[in-house]
Design a protein around this nucleic acid. Structure first.
Lengths: 195, 195
DNA sequence: GTCTATAGAGCGATAGAC
DNA sequence: GTCTATCGCTCTATAGAC
Protein backbone atom coordinates (compact mmCIF):
# COMPACT_ATOMS: atom_id res chain seq x y z
CA UNK A 1 0.00 0.00 0.00
CA UNK A 2 2.98 2.26 0.39
CA UNK A 3 4.43 2.42 -3.13
CA UNK A 4 3.83 0.20 -6.14
CA UNK A 5 6.70 -2.20 -5.64
CA UNK A 6 8.83 -0.51 -8.24
CA UNK A 7 8.69 3.09 -7.11
CA UNK A 8 8.71 5.55 -9.99
CA UNK A 9 10.30 8.27 -7.91
CA UNK A 10 13.06 5.86 -7.02
CA UNK A 11 13.61 4.89 -10.66
CA UNK A 12 13.92 8.55 -11.59
CA UNK A 13 16.59 9.18 -8.98
CA UNK A 14 18.60 6.13 -9.98
CA UNK A 15 18.36 6.97 -13.67
CA UNK A 16 19.44 10.52 -12.93
CA UNK A 17 22.42 9.21 -10.97
CA UNK A 18 23.53 7.05 -13.86
CA UNK A 19 23.20 9.78 -16.44
CA UNK A 20 24.84 12.39 -14.24
CA UNK A 21 27.73 9.98 -13.91
CA UNK A 22 27.94 9.21 -17.62
CA UNK A 23 27.16 12.58 -19.16
CA UNK A 24 27.18 15.20 -16.43
CA UNK A 25 24.46 17.70 -15.57
CA UNK A 26 24.69 19.80 -18.72
CA UNK A 27 24.71 16.69 -20.89
CA UNK A 28 21.68 15.14 -19.25
CA UNK A 29 18.13 16.10 -20.26
CA UNK A 30 14.97 15.43 -18.27
CA UNK A 31 13.69 13.50 -21.25
CA UNK A 32 16.68 11.16 -21.19
CA UNK A 33 16.15 10.53 -17.48
CA UNK A 34 12.48 9.78 -18.01
CA UNK A 35 13.20 7.34 -20.81
CA UNK A 36 15.78 5.45 -18.79
CA UNK A 37 13.41 5.34 -15.84
CA UNK A 38 10.51 4.21 -17.98
CA UNK A 39 8.49 7.15 -16.72
CA UNK A 40 6.61 9.89 -18.52
CA UNK A 41 7.00 13.64 -18.47
CA UNK A 42 4.11 14.00 -16.04
CA UNK A 43 5.59 11.60 -13.51
CA UNK A 44 8.85 13.45 -13.29
CA UNK A 45 7.24 16.83 -12.79
CA UNK A 46 4.88 15.35 -10.25
CA UNK A 47 7.69 14.01 -8.07
CA UNK A 48 10.19 16.80 -8.66
CA UNK A 49 9.97 20.51 -9.31
CA UNK A 50 12.32 20.24 -12.29
CA UNK A 51 15.72 19.14 -13.43
CA UNK A 52 17.71 20.83 -10.64
CA UNK A 53 15.44 19.36 -7.97
CA UNK A 54 15.82 15.82 -9.30
CA UNK A 55 19.55 16.32 -9.77
CA UNK A 56 19.82 17.43 -6.15
CA UNK A 57 18.26 14.19 -4.95
CA UNK A 58 20.60 12.19 -7.20
CA UNK A 59 23.72 14.11 -6.17
CA UNK A 60 22.93 13.82 -2.49
CA UNK A 61 22.56 10.09 -2.77
CA UNK A 62 25.80 9.61 -4.68
CA UNK A 63 27.67 11.83 -2.25
CA UNK A 64 26.25 10.02 0.77
CA UNK A 65 27.14 6.67 -0.73
CA UNK A 66 30.72 7.69 -1.40
CA UNK A 67 31.16 9.10 2.08
CA UNK A 68 29.62 6.09 3.79
CA UNK A 69 31.84 3.70 1.92
CA UNK A 70 35.00 5.61 2.76
CA UNK A 71 34.00 5.91 6.39
CA UNK A 72 33.40 2.18 6.62
CA UNK A 73 36.88 1.50 5.28
CA UNK A 74 38.48 4.07 7.54
CA UNK A 75 36.80 2.46 10.53
CA UNK A 76 37.77 -1.07 9.50
CA UNK A 77 40.20 -3.44 11.08
CA UNK A 78 43.98 -3.43 10.90
CA UNK A 79 46.58 -0.78 11.46
CA UNK A 80 46.25 2.79 10.19
CA UNK A 81 48.39 1.95 7.18
CA UNK A 82 46.30 -1.15 6.52
CA UNK A 83 43.17 0.94 6.39
CA UNK A 84 44.75 3.65 4.22
CA UNK A 85 45.98 0.97 1.85
CA UNK A 86 42.57 -0.68 1.75
CA UNK A 87 40.91 2.62 0.92
CA UNK A 88 43.39 3.54 -1.78
CA UNK A 89 43.53 0.07 -3.26
CA UNK A 90 39.82 -0.60 -3.37
CA UNK A 91 38.66 -1.59 -6.82
CA UNK A 92 36.98 1.26 -8.62
CA UNK A 93 35.45 1.67 -12.06
CA UNK A 94 38.40 3.73 -13.23
CA UNK A 95 37.15 4.40 -16.74
CA UNK A 96 33.81 5.62 -15.51
CA UNK A 97 35.37 8.21 -13.29
CA UNK A 98 34.17 9.32 -9.86
CA UNK A 99 30.44 10.04 -9.79
CA UNK A 100 31.02 12.85 -7.30
CA UNK A 101 34.32 14.30 -8.50
CA UNK A 102 32.87 14.46 -11.97
CA UNK A 103 30.34 17.06 -10.91
CA UNK A 104 33.18 19.41 -10.16
CA UNK A 105 33.54 19.97 -13.92
CA UNK A 106 29.91 20.88 -14.37
CA UNK A 107 29.55 24.64 -14.49
CA UNK A 108 25.84 24.56 -13.68
CA UNK A 109 26.41 22.35 -10.64
CA UNK A 110 29.21 24.50 -9.29
CA UNK A 111 27.16 27.65 -9.86
CA UNK A 112 24.28 26.37 -7.71
CA UNK A 113 25.16 26.35 -4.00
CA UNK A 114 22.59 23.67 -3.24
CA UNK A 115 23.87 21.27 -5.88
CA UNK A 116 27.43 21.98 -5.00
CA UNK A 117 27.20 21.55 -1.22
CA UNK A 118 27.12 17.73 -1.16
CA UNK A 119 30.19 17.60 -3.38
CA UNK A 120 32.12 19.98 -1.19
CA UNK A 121 31.17 18.26 2.04
CA UNK A 122 32.05 14.81 0.77
CA UNK A 123 35.60 15.69 -0.14
CA UNK A 124 36.10 17.75 3.00
CA UNK A 125 35.10 14.92 5.26
CA UNK A 126 36.91 12.15 3.44
CA UNK A 127 40.10 14.21 3.49
CA UNK A 128 39.71 15.03 7.19
CA UNK A 129 39.23 11.42 8.16
CA UNK A 130 42.09 10.23 6.01
CA UNK A 131 44.28 12.90 7.62
CA UNK A 132 43.44 11.48 11.03
CA UNK A 133 44.57 8.06 9.84
CA UNK A 134 47.82 9.50 8.49
CA UNK A 135 48.42 11.15 11.85
CA UNK A 136 47.75 7.84 13.56
CA UNK A 137 50.18 6.06 11.25
CA UNK A 138 52.81 8.69 11.91
CA UNK A 139 52.33 8.38 15.64
CA UNK A 140 52.62 4.61 15.73
CA UNK A 141 55.71 4.45 13.55
CA UNK A 142 54.14 3.08 10.38
CA UNK A 143 54.60 6.31 8.48
CA UNK A 144 57.27 8.96 8.33
CA UNK A 145 56.55 11.32 11.25
CA UNK A 146 57.64 14.29 9.15
CA UNK A 147 54.56 13.95 6.95
CA UNK A 148 51.96 16.69 7.30
CA UNK A 149 48.73 14.72 7.86
CA UNK A 150 46.35 17.13 6.14
CA UNK A 151 48.60 17.83 3.15
CA UNK A 152 49.38 14.14 2.76
CA UNK A 153 45.72 13.15 2.94
CA UNK A 154 44.83 15.83 0.40
CA UNK A 155 47.50 14.52 -1.96
CA UNK A 156 46.25 10.95 -1.58
CA UNK A 157 42.64 11.85 -2.33
CA UNK A 158 43.92 13.89 -5.27
CA UNK A 159 45.78 10.87 -6.61
CA UNK A 160 42.50 8.96 -6.79
CA UNK A 161 40.65 11.80 -8.47
CA UNK A 162 43.51 12.45 -10.85
CA UNK A 163 43.87 8.74 -11.47
CA UNK A 164 40.37 8.74 -12.92
CA UNK A 165 41.31 11.62 -15.20
CA UNK A 166 44.46 9.91 -16.46
CA UNK A 167 42.71 6.58 -16.92
CA UNK A 168 40.00 8.18 -19.03
CA UNK A 169 42.57 10.13 -21.03
CA UNK A 170 44.50 6.94 -21.74
CA UNK A 171 41.40 4.84 -22.23
CA UNK A 172 42.88 2.33 -19.84
CA UNK A 173 42.12 1.40 -16.25
CA UNK A 174 45.75 0.35 -15.84
CA UNK A 175 46.80 3.96 -15.54
CA UNK A 176 44.54 4.39 -12.54
CA UNK A 177 46.12 1.35 -10.89
CA UNK A 178 49.56 2.76 -11.64
CA UNK A 179 48.74 6.05 -9.94
CA UNK A 180 47.59 4.20 -6.84
CA UNK A 181 50.73 2.06 -6.86
CA UNK A 182 52.84 5.18 -7.14
CA UNK A 183 51.06 6.77 -4.20
CA UNK A 184 51.50 3.69 -2.06
CA UNK A 185 55.16 3.54 -3.01
CA UNK A 186 55.63 7.13 -1.91
CA UNK A 187 53.70 6.62 1.29
CA UNK A 188 55.36 3.39 2.40
CA UNK A 189 58.58 2.87 0.45
CA UNK A 190 59.67 0.31 3.01
CA UNK A 191 56.82 -2.02 2.10
CA UNK A 192 57.88 -4.30 -0.72
CA UNK A 193 55.38 -5.15 -3.38
CA UNK A 194 54.97 -8.76 -4.36
CA UNK A 195 55.88 -9.71 -7.90
CA UNK B 1 48.02 41.43 -46.90
CA UNK B 2 47.94 38.11 -45.09
CA UNK B 3 45.16 38.52 -42.58
CA UNK B 4 43.31 41.59 -41.31
CA UNK B 5 45.40 42.25 -38.24
CA UNK B 6 42.79 40.72 -35.98
CA UNK B 7 42.21 37.38 -37.65
CA UNK B 8 38.66 36.13 -37.30
CA UNK B 9 39.68 32.51 -37.53
CA UNK B 10 42.14 33.11 -34.73
CA UNK B 11 39.51 34.80 -32.56
CA UNK B 12 37.20 31.84 -33.05
CA UNK B 13 39.83 29.36 -31.91
CA UNK B 14 40.73 31.40 -28.84
CA UNK B 15 37.09 31.91 -27.89
CA UNK B 16 36.47 28.19 -28.31
CA UNK B 17 39.45 27.44 -26.06
CA UNK B 18 38.09 29.68 -23.32
CA UNK B 19 34.60 28.28 -23.48
CA UNK B 20 35.80 24.68 -23.67
CA UNK B 21 37.78 25.41 -20.51
CA UNK B 22 34.91 27.09 -18.70
CA UNK B 23 31.96 25.01 -19.82
CA UNK B 24 33.24 21.95 -21.63
CA UNK B 25 32.28 20.71 -25.08
CA UNK B 26 28.68 19.80 -24.33
CA UNK B 27 28.11 23.08 -22.55
CA UNK B 28 29.50 25.22 -25.35
CA UNK B 29 27.40 26.21 -28.35
CA UNK B 30 28.67 27.52 -31.68
CA UNK B 31 26.60 30.64 -31.07
CA UNK B 32 28.34 31.33 -27.77
CA UNK B 33 31.73 30.97 -29.45
CA UNK B 34 30.72 33.32 -32.24
CA UNK B 35 29.49 35.95 -29.82
CA UNK B 36 32.65 35.85 -27.73
CA UNK B 37 34.73 36.07 -30.89
CA UNK B 38 32.67 38.92 -32.28
CA UNK B 39 32.05 36.89 -35.41
CA UNK B 40 28.86 35.91 -37.18
CA UNK B 41 27.39 32.54 -37.99
CA UNK B 42 28.67 32.72 -41.54
CA UNK B 43 32.26 33.36 -40.50
CA UNK B 44 32.44 30.34 -38.32
CA UNK B 45 31.05 27.98 -40.91
CA UNK B 46 33.35 29.48 -43.50
CA UNK B 47 36.49 28.78 -41.47
CA UNK B 48 35.37 25.50 -39.91
CA UNK B 49 33.15 22.64 -40.98
CA UNK B 50 31.23 22.75 -37.71
CA UNK B 51 31.51 22.58 -33.96
CA UNK B 52 33.69 19.45 -33.82
CA UNK B 53 36.11 20.87 -36.37
CA UNK B 54 36.54 24.13 -34.46
CA UNK B 55 36.80 22.25 -31.18
CA UNK B 56 39.55 20.10 -32.65
CA UNK B 57 41.63 23.16 -33.49
CA UNK B 58 41.05 24.55 -29.99
CA UNK B 59 41.84 21.27 -28.23
CA UNK B 60 45.02 20.73 -30.23
CA UNK B 61 46.28 24.16 -29.32
CA UNK B 62 45.56 23.76 -25.62
CA UNK B 63 47.18 20.34 -25.58
CA UNK B 64 50.27 21.57 -27.43
CA UNK B 65 50.57 24.50 -25.05
CA UNK B 66 50.38 22.30 -21.99
CA UNK B 67 52.94 19.85 -23.34
CA UNK B 68 55.35 22.57 -24.44
CA UNK B 69 55.23 24.23 -21.06
CA UNK B 70 55.90 21.00 -19.19
CA UNK B 71 58.72 20.06 -21.54
CA UNK B 72 60.36 23.43 -21.03
CA UNK B 73 60.28 22.96 -17.27
CA UNK B 74 61.54 19.39 -17.50
CA UNK B 75 64.45 20.57 -19.62
CA UNK B 76 65.27 23.50 -17.31
CA UNK B 77 68.24 24.00 -15.05
CA UNK B 78 68.94 22.43 -11.69
CA UNK B 79 68.90 18.87 -10.43
CA UNK B 80 66.21 16.38 -11.32
CA UNK B 81 64.43 17.08 -8.05
CA UNK B 82 64.67 20.82 -8.69
CA UNK B 83 62.94 20.42 -12.02
CA UNK B 84 60.27 18.08 -10.64
CA UNK B 85 59.63 20.56 -7.85
CA UNK B 86 59.45 23.46 -10.29
CA UNK B 87 56.93 21.59 -12.42
CA UNK B 88 54.74 20.56 -9.50
CA UNK B 89 54.98 23.91 -7.78
CA UNK B 90 54.29 26.09 -10.77
CA UNK B 91 51.43 28.48 -10.17
CA UNK B 92 48.25 27.31 -11.82
CA UNK B 93 44.72 28.65 -11.98
CA UNK B 94 43.51 25.99 -9.57
CA UNK B 95 39.86 27.00 -9.55
CA UNK B 96 39.63 27.01 -13.32
CA UNK B 97 40.85 23.46 -13.56
CA UNK B 98 43.09 22.01 -16.24
CA UNK B 99 41.99 22.96 -19.76
CA UNK B 100 43.10 19.56 -21.05
CA UNK B 101 42.19 17.30 -18.13
CA UNK B 102 38.75 18.82 -18.15
CA UNK B 103 37.98 17.36 -21.54
CA UNK B 104 38.29 13.93 -20.03
CA UNK B 105 34.86 14.42 -18.47
CA UNK B 106 33.22 15.34 -21.75
CA UNK B 107 31.44 12.30 -23.17
CA UNK B 108 31.32 13.72 -26.70
CA UNK B 109 35.05 14.44 -26.68
CA UNK B 110 35.97 11.00 -25.40
CA UNK B 111 33.65 9.36 -27.93
CA UNK B 112 35.41 11.04 -30.87
CA UNK B 113 38.87 9.55 -31.50
CA UNK B 114 40.08 12.71 -33.24
CA UNK B 115 39.08 15.00 -30.39
CA UNK B 116 40.38 12.62 -27.83
CA UNK B 117 43.82 11.94 -29.33
CA UNK B 118 45.49 15.21 -28.27
CA UNK B 119 44.31 14.68 -24.69
CA UNK B 120 45.66 11.17 -24.55
CA UNK B 121 48.99 12.07 -26.09
CA UNK B 122 49.55 15.01 -23.80
CA UNK B 123 49.21 13.02 -20.62
CA UNK B 124 51.18 10.10 -21.99
CA UNK B 125 54.15 12.25 -22.88
CA UNK B 126 54.15 14.39 -19.77
CA UNK B 127 54.06 11.26 -17.63
CA UNK B 128 56.85 9.61 -19.60
CA UNK B 129 59.14 12.59 -19.30
CA UNK B 130 58.42 13.04 -15.64
CA UNK B 131 59.20 9.35 -15.13
CA UNK B 132 62.59 9.90 -16.73
CA UNK B 133 63.27 12.70 -14.25
CA UNK B 134 62.24 10.50 -11.34
CA UNK B 135 64.62 7.81 -12.58
CA UNK B 136 67.36 10.40 -12.81
CA UNK B 137 66.67 11.59 -9.27
CA UNK B 138 66.72 8.02 -8.01
CA UNK B 139 70.02 7.36 -9.75
CA UNK B 140 71.76 10.42 -8.38
CA UNK B 141 70.64 9.91 -4.81
CA UNK B 142 68.08 12.70 -4.57
CA UNK B 143 65.14 10.32 -4.44
CA UNK B 144 64.51 6.99 -2.83
CA UNK B 145 65.87 4.40 -5.29
CA UNK B 146 63.04 2.04 -4.41
CA UNK B 147 60.54 4.30 -6.19
CA UNK B 148 59.09 2.95 -9.43
CA UNK B 149 59.66 5.82 -11.86
CA UNK B 150 56.58 5.32 -14.03
CA UNK B 151 54.19 4.65 -11.14
CA UNK B 152 55.60 7.59 -9.20
CA UNK B 153 55.33 9.95 -12.16
CA UNK B 154 51.77 8.81 -12.79
CA UNK B 155 50.89 9.50 -9.17
CA UNK B 156 52.44 12.97 -9.33
CA UNK B 157 50.56 13.95 -12.47
CA UNK B 158 47.43 12.56 -10.86
CA UNK B 159 47.97 14.76 -7.81
CA UNK B 160 47.87 17.82 -10.04
CA UNK B 161 44.75 16.70 -11.87
CA UNK B 162 43.07 15.65 -8.66
CA UNK B 163 44.18 18.86 -6.99
CA UNK B 164 42.10 20.77 -9.49
CA UNK B 165 39.10 18.61 -8.68
CA UNK B 166 39.46 19.10 -4.93
CA UNK B 167 40.06 22.84 -5.28
CA UNK B 168 36.92 23.27 -7.32
CA UNK B 169 34.94 21.10 -4.91
CA UNK B 170 36.11 23.23 -1.99
CA UNK B 171 35.86 26.50 -3.88
CA UNK B 172 39.37 27.28 -2.73
CA UNK B 173 42.72 27.29 -4.48
CA UNK B 174 44.36 26.53 -1.14
CA UNK B 175 43.33 22.91 -1.43
CA UNK B 176 45.25 22.60 -4.68
CA UNK B 177 48.36 24.01 -3.00
CA UNK B 178 47.88 21.59 -0.14
CA UNK B 179 47.79 18.61 -2.48
CA UNK B 180 51.02 19.74 -4.12
CA UNK B 181 52.64 20.24 -0.71
CA UNK B 182 51.56 16.77 0.30
CA UNK B 183 53.03 15.27 -2.86
CA UNK B 184 56.34 17.06 -2.36
CA UNK B 185 56.40 15.92 1.25
CA UNK B 186 55.95 12.32 0.16
CA UNK B 187 58.51 12.61 -2.58
CA UNK B 188 61.24 14.31 -0.57
CA UNK B 189 60.52 13.99 3.15
CA UNK B 190 64.10 14.96 3.91
CA UNK B 191 63.63 18.43 2.46
CA UNK B 192 62.32 20.75 5.13
CA UNK B 193 59.79 23.36 4.17
CA UNK B 194 60.38 26.92 5.24
CA UNK B 195 57.76 28.41 7.45
C1' DG C 1 34.78 36.44 -46.18
C1' DT C 2 30.67 37.85 -43.77
C1' DC C 3 25.79 38.67 -43.46
C1' DT C 4 20.74 37.32 -42.60
C1' DA C 5 17.14 33.96 -43.01
C1' DT C 6 15.54 29.64 -42.24
C1' DA C 7 15.29 24.77 -40.88
C1' DG C 8 14.36 20.53 -38.01
C1' DA C 9 15.35 18.79 -33.72
C1' DG C 10 15.67 18.91 -28.85
C1' DC C 11 15.54 21.67 -24.56
C1' DG C 12 13.04 22.46 -19.90
C1' DA C 13 8.63 23.42 -18.38
C1' DT C 14 3.43 23.96 -18.02
C1' DA C 15 -1.57 22.76 -18.73
C1' DG C 16 -5.19 20.07 -18.30
C1' DA C 17 -7.51 15.52 -19.20
C1' DC C 18 -7.93 11.07 -17.11
C1' DG D 1 -0.04 9.64 -10.27
C1' DT D 2 0.43 9.50 -15.05
C1' DC D 3 -0.75 10.82 -19.71
C1' DT D 4 -0.63 13.84 -23.99
C1' DA D 5 -0.41 18.37 -26.00
C1' DT D 6 1.68 22.46 -26.34
C1' DC D 7 4.90 26.36 -25.44
C1' DG D 8 8.91 29.49 -26.23
C1' DC D 9 13.53 28.86 -26.59
C1' DT D 10 18.09 27.19 -28.08
C1' DC D 11 20.80 23.89 -30.63
C1' DT D 12 23.70 22.94 -34.89
C1' DA D 13 23.67 23.55 -39.53
C1' DT D 14 22.49 25.09 -44.39
C1' DA D 15 21.20 28.48 -48.07
C1' DG D 16 21.92 32.19 -50.57
C1' DA D 17 22.53 37.33 -50.88
C1' DC D 18 26.16 40.70 -50.73
Amino acid sequence: MYGDGVDTREQLIESARELLWERGYVGTSPKAIQQRAGAGQGSMYHHFRGKPDLALAAIRRSADEMRARAEAEFAGTGTALDRITAYLGRERAALRGCPVGRLTQDPDVMADPELRAPVEETFTRVTEQLAALVAEGSANGELDPRLDPVATATALVAVLQGGYVLARAAGSADVYARAVDGALGLLAPHVRKEG
